[in-house]
Protein backbone atom coordinates (compact mmCIF):
# COMPACT_ATOMS: atom_id res chain seq x y z
CA UNK A 1 0.00 0.00 0.00
CA UNK A 2 1.35 3.41 -0.95
CA UNK A 3 2.13 6.28 1.38
CA UNK A 4 -1.05 8.21 0.51
CA UNK A 5 -3.04 5.02 0.77
CA UNK A 6 -1.79 4.49 4.32
CA UNK A 7 -2.72 8.03 5.24
CA UNK A 8 -6.25 7.62 3.93
CA UNK A 9 -6.52 4.23 5.65
CA UNK A 10 -5.58 5.80 8.99
CA UNK A 11 -8.22 8.48 8.47
CA UNK A 12 -10.81 5.81 7.69
CA UNK A 13 -10.04 3.88 10.88
CA UNK A 14 -10.30 7.04 12.97
CA UNK A 15 -13.63 7.68 11.29
CA UNK A 16 -14.95 4.23 12.10
CA UNK A 17 -14.07 4.79 15.76
CA UNK A 18 -16.10 8.01 15.81
CA UNK A 19 -19.08 6.17 14.33
CA UNK A 20 -19.19 3.49 16.97
CA UNK A 21 -19.12 6.12 19.68
CA UNK A 22 -21.98 8.04 18.07
CA UNK A 23 -24.17 5.01 17.52
CA UNK A 24 -25.37 4.89 21.17
CA UNK A 25 -27.85 7.78 20.85
CA UNK A 26 -30.99 8.33 22.90
CA UNK A 27 -31.17 4.81 24.31
CA UNK A 28 -29.62 3.72 27.60
CA UNK A 29 -26.64 1.41 27.23
CA UNK A 30 -27.71 -2.23 27.31
CA UNK A 31 -26.82 -4.38 30.28
CA UNK A 32 -24.67 -7.34 29.26
CA UNK A 33 -26.20 -10.68 30.10
CA UNK A 34 -24.11 -13.82 29.87
CA UNK A 35 -26.05 -16.93 28.88
CA UNK A 36 -24.44 -20.27 27.94
CA UNK A 37 -25.63 -20.22 24.32
CA UNK A 38 -24.11 -16.76 23.73
CA UNK A 39 -20.66 -18.35 23.81
CA UNK A 40 -19.77 -19.10 20.14
CA UNK A 41 -19.59 -22.84 20.87
CA UNK A 42 -22.24 -22.91 23.59
CA UNK A 43 -25.55 -24.72 23.76
CA UNK A 44 -28.87 -23.64 25.21
CA UNK A 45 -29.45 -24.15 28.93
CA UNK A 46 -32.60 -26.20 28.41
CA UNK A 47 -33.59 -26.08 32.08
CA UNK A 48 -33.69 -22.30 31.64
CA UNK A 49 -35.64 -22.69 28.38
CA UNK A 50 -38.26 -24.74 30.25
CA UNK A 51 -38.45 -22.19 33.07
CA UNK A 52 -38.67 -19.43 30.46
CA UNK A 53 -41.55 -21.27 28.81
CA UNK A 54 -43.35 -21.27 32.15
CA UNK A 55 -42.81 -17.50 32.54
CA UNK A 56 -43.97 -16.96 28.97
CA UNK A 57 -47.13 -19.00 29.54
CA UNK A 58 -48.00 -17.39 32.87
CA UNK A 59 -46.92 -13.80 32.19
CA UNK A 60 -46.04 -12.81 28.61
CA UNK A 61 -48.71 -14.85 26.81
CA UNK A 62 -51.42 -12.59 28.18
CA UNK A 63 -50.45 -10.11 25.47
CA UNK A 64 -47.73 -11.63 23.25
CA UNK A 65 -48.13 -14.46 20.75
CA UNK A 66 -45.41 -16.79 19.39
CA UNK A 67 -46.93 -17.70 16.07
CA UNK A 68 -44.11 -19.91 14.76
CA UNK A 69 -43.81 -22.12 17.85
CA UNK A 70 -45.49 -25.53 17.69
CA UNK A 71 -46.05 -27.65 20.80
CA UNK A 72 -44.03 -30.48 19.23
CA UNK A 73 -41.01 -28.14 19.14
CA UNK A 74 -40.94 -28.43 22.94
CA UNK A 75 -39.70 -32.02 22.50
CA UNK A 76 -36.33 -30.44 21.71
CA UNK A 77 -36.16 -28.72 25.11
CA UNK A 78 -35.87 -31.93 27.14
CA UNK A 79 -39.59 -32.29 27.88
CA UNK A 80 -40.91 -35.80 27.27
CA UNK A 81 -43.62 -36.41 24.63
CA UNK A 82 -46.32 -37.03 27.32
CA UNK A 83 -45.34 -33.74 29.02
CA UNK A 84 -45.58 -31.93 25.68
CA UNK A 85 -48.97 -33.52 25.04
CA UNK A 86 -50.16 -32.37 28.45
CA UNK A 87 -48.97 -28.79 27.83
CA UNK A 88 -50.73 -28.76 24.45
CA UNK A 89 -53.96 -30.09 25.99
CA UNK A 90 -54.19 -27.00 28.21
CA UNK A 91 -54.95 -24.93 25.08
CA UNK A 92 -57.90 -25.00 22.71
CA UNK A 93 -57.53 -24.44 19.00
CA UNK A 94 -60.04 -23.84 16.23
CA UNK A 95 -60.31 -26.67 13.72
CA UNK A 96 -62.65 -27.57 10.90
CA UNK A 97 -64.72 -27.38 8.94
CA UNK A 98 -66.25 -30.72 10.00
CA UNK A 99 -68.65 -32.78 7.88
CA UNK A 100 -71.46 -30.37 8.74
CA UNK A 101 -69.36 -27.45 7.50
CA UNK A 102 -68.92 -26.09 11.02
CA UNK A 103 -65.71 -24.84 12.60
CA UNK A 104 -65.19 -26.31 16.05
CA UNK A 105 -62.87 -26.00 19.03
CA UNK A 106 -60.80 -28.90 20.30
CA UNK A 107 -57.90 -29.34 22.74
CA UNK A 108 -54.55 -28.58 21.11
CA UNK A 109 -52.25 -31.45 20.13
CA UNK A 110 -48.46 -31.47 19.73
CA UNK A 111 -48.82 -30.89 15.97
CA UNK A 112 -50.54 -27.53 16.56
CA UNK A 113 -48.88 -24.19 16.96
CA UNK A 114 -49.41 -22.05 20.07
CA UNK A 115 -52.75 -20.29 19.50
CA UNK A 116 -52.54 -16.55 18.83
CA UNK A 117 -53.31 -14.30 21.78
CA UNK A 118 -55.31 -11.91 19.61
CA UNK A 119 -56.90 -12.75 16.26
CA UNK A 120 -55.37 -9.67 14.57
CA UNK A 121 -53.44 -6.46 15.15
CA UNK A 122 -56.57 -4.36 15.59
CA UNK A 123 -57.88 -6.61 18.34
CA UNK A 124 -54.48 -6.50 20.06
CA UNK A 125 -54.39 -2.70 19.93
CA UNK A 126 -58.00 -2.41 21.14
CA UNK A 127 -57.18 -4.54 24.18
CA UNK A 128 -53.91 -2.75 24.94
CA UNK A 129 -54.75 0.92 24.95
CA UNK A 130 -53.64 1.32 21.32
CA UNK A 131 -50.27 -0.38 21.76
CA UNK A 132 -49.37 -3.47 19.74
CA UNK A 133 -47.57 -6.24 21.66
CA UNK A 134 -45.25 -7.73 19.00
CA UNK A 135 -45.13 -11.43 18.24
CA UNK A 136 -42.12 -12.95 20.01
CA UNK A 137 -41.24 -15.74 17.52
CA UNK A 138 -38.14 -13.95 16.24
CA UNK A 139 -37.76 -11.15 18.74
CA UNK A 140 -34.19 -11.98 19.79
CA UNK A 141 -33.02 -11.86 16.16
CA UNK A 142 -35.15 -8.81 15.37
CA UNK A 143 -33.72 -6.36 17.92
CA UNK A 144 -30.34 -4.62 17.97
CA UNK A 145 -28.51 -6.03 20.99
CA UNK A 146 -30.37 -9.34 20.78
CA UNK A 147 -30.36 -11.17 24.17
CA UNK A 148 -28.86 -8.14 25.91
CA UNK A 149 -31.74 -6.00 24.71
CA UNK A 150 -34.48 -8.40 25.89
CA UNK A 151 -32.82 -8.88 29.27
CA UNK A 152 -32.13 -5.17 29.73
CA UNK A 153 -35.69 -4.26 28.81
CA UNK A 154 -37.16 -6.74 31.29
CA UNK A 155 -35.00 -5.58 34.21
CA UNK A 156 -34.82 -1.95 33.04
CA UNK A 157 -38.00 -0.55 34.60
CA UNK A 158 -37.31 2.30 37.03
CA UNK A 159 -38.87 5.40 38.50
CA UNK A 160 -38.76 8.14 35.87
CA UNK A 161 -36.36 11.04 36.46
CA UNK A 162 -38.11 14.24 37.57
CA UNK A 163 -37.67 15.93 34.17
CA UNK A 164 -39.07 13.00 32.15
CA UNK A 165 -42.58 13.60 30.77
CA UNK A 166 -44.43 10.33 30.26
CA UNK A 167 -47.46 10.08 27.97
CA UNK A 168 -50.71 8.78 29.39
CA UNK A 169 -50.53 5.07 30.27
CA UNK A 170 -46.81 4.82 29.50
CA UNK A 171 -44.10 3.40 31.72
CA UNK A 172 -40.52 4.59 32.08
CA UNK A 173 -37.92 2.19 30.72
CA UNK A 174 -34.64 3.69 29.54
CA UNK A 175 -33.80 0.53 27.53
CA UNK A 176 -36.72 1.12 25.19
CA UNK A 177 -35.88 3.62 22.41
CA UNK A 178 -37.37 6.93 23.53
CA UNK A 179 -37.52 5.83 27.16
CA UNK A 180 -41.25 5.18 27.44
CA UNK A 181 -43.03 1.92 26.79
CA UNK A 182 -46.69 0.88 26.87
CA UNK A 183 -45.90 -2.46 28.53
CA UNK A 184 -46.11 -2.28 32.32
CA UNK A 185 -43.24 -3.96 34.17
CA UNK A 186 -44.14 -7.61 33.50
CA UNK A 187 -41.96 -9.26 36.12
CA UNK A 188 -41.98 -8.97 39.90
CA UNK A 189 -40.32 -11.28 42.44
CA UNK A 190 -42.20 -14.56 42.82
CA UNK A 191 -44.43 -13.73 39.82
CA UNK A 192 -44.28 -17.43 39.00
CA UNK A 193 -43.60 -20.46 41.14
CA UNK A 194 -40.98 -22.46 39.26
CA UNK A 195 -41.72 -26.16 38.90
CA UNK A 196 -38.04 -27.00 39.53
CA UNK A 197 -37.87 -24.98 42.74
CA UNK A 198 -35.57 -22.23 41.39
CA UNK A 199 -36.08 -18.95 43.24
CA UNK A 200 -38.10 -16.69 40.93
CA UNK A 201 -36.33 -13.34 41.22
CA UNK A 202 -36.88 -10.71 38.53
CA UNK A 203 -33.30 -11.23 37.36
CA UNK A 204 -33.72 -15.03 37.21
CA UNK A 205 -37.01 -14.80 35.31
CA UNK A 206 -35.55 -12.23 32.89
CA UNK A 207 -32.62 -14.57 32.14
CA UNK A 208 -34.92 -17.55 31.70
CA UNK A 209 -37.35 -15.77 29.41
CA UNK A 210 -34.44 -14.39 27.40
CA UNK A 211 -33.02 -17.90 27.01
CA UNK A 212 -36.45 -19.23 26.03
CA UNK A 213 -36.99 -16.49 23.44
CA UNK A 214 -33.49 -17.00 22.04
CA UNK A 215 -34.32 -20.68 21.57
CA UNK A 216 -37.67 -19.81 19.96
CA UNK A 217 -35.93 -17.38 17.59
CA UNK A 218 -33.19 -19.80 16.55
CA UNK A 219 -34.12 -23.39 17.48
CA UNK A 220 -31.46 -24.86 15.18
CA UNK A 221 -28.52 -23.00 16.80
CA UNK A 222 -27.01 -26.06 18.53
CA UNK A 223 -27.32 -28.28 15.45
CA UNK A 224 -25.83 -25.49 13.32
CA UNK A 225 -22.77 -25.06 15.53
CA UNK A 226 -22.15 -28.81 15.80
CA UNK A 227 -22.29 -29.20 12.03
CA UNK A 228 -20.14 -26.10 11.61
CA UNK A 229 -17.30 -27.52 13.71
CA UNK A 230 -17.30 -30.71 11.61
CA UNK A 231 -17.39 -28.80 8.31
CA UNK A 232 -14.57 -26.47 9.33
CA UNK A 233 -12.38 -29.32 10.60
CA UNK A 234 -12.94 -31.10 7.29
CA UNK A 235 -12.12 -28.01 5.25
CA UNK A 236 -8.98 -27.25 7.26
CA UNK A 237 -7.65 -30.79 6.75
CA UNK A 238 -8.66 -30.69 3.08
CA UNK A 239 -6.92 -27.33 2.62
CA UNK A 240 -3.71 -28.60 4.20
CA UNK A 241 -3.78 -31.66 1.92
CA UNK A 242 -4.46 -29.53 -1.14
CA UNK A 243 -1.64 -27.22 -0.16
CA UNK A 244 0.72 -30.20 0.01
CA UNK A 245 -0.54 -31.44 -3.36
CA UNK A 246 -0.10 -27.98 -4.83
CA UNK A 247 3.47 -27.77 -3.54
CA UNK A 248 4.27 -31.14 -5.06
CA UNK A 249 2.65 -30.37 -8.41
CA UNK A 250 4.42 -27.02 -8.68
CA UNK A 251 7.76 -28.29 -7.35
CA UNK A 252 9.21 -29.00 -10.81
CA UNK A 253 8.67 -25.35 -11.83
CA UNK A 254 10.57 -23.77 -8.96
Amino acid sequence: MGRFGKLVAAAAIALAAVTTAQAAGEQAELKKVSLPHMNPFGSYDFAAVQRGLQVYQEVCAACHSIEFLAFRDLNDTGLTPPQVKAIAAEYTVMDGPNDDGEMYERPAEPKDRFPLTFPNEQAARAANNGAYPPDLSLVVKARIGHENYIYSLLVGYADPPADKELADGMEYNPTFPGGQIAMAAPLSDEAVEYADGTKATVDQMARDVTTFLAWVSEPTLVERRQLGIKVIIFLVIFSVLMYAVKRKVWADLH
Binding site: R225, G228, V231, I232, L235, S239, K246
Partner: peptide
Protein backbone atom coordinates in the same frame (compact mmCIF):
# COMPACT_ATOMS: atom_id res chain seq x y z
CA UNK B 1 -1.23 -26.56 -12.05
CA UNK B 2 -4.24 -24.29 -11.73
CA UNK B 3 -6.89 -26.92 -11.05
CA UNK B 4 -5.09 -27.84 -7.84
CA UNK B 5 -4.42 -24.21 -6.97
CA UNK B 6 -8.06 -23.25 -7.57
CA UNK B 7 -9.31 -26.13 -5.43
CA UNK B 8 -6.97 -25.00 -2.66
CA UNK B 9 -8.34 -21.44 -2.94
CA UNK B 10 -11.92 -22.66 -2.89
CA UNK B 11 -11.24 -24.80 0.21
CA UNK B 12 -9.67 -21.91 2.12
CA UNK B 13 -12.45 -19.55 1.05
CA UNK B 14 -14.87 -22.27 2.18
CA UNK B 15 -13.47 -21.98 5.71
CA UNK B 16 -14.08 -18.24 5.68
CA UNK B 17 -17.61 -18.83 4.34
CA UNK B 18 -18.26 -21.50 6.99
CA UNK B 19 -17.33 -19.18 9.86
CA UNK B 20 -20.12 -16.84 8.76
CA UNK B 21 -22.53 -19.58 7.78
CA UNK B 22 -22.30 -21.63 10.98
CA UNK B 23 -21.24 -19.17 13.66
Amino acid sequence: YYTVKDILGIAVFGIFFSVFLFF
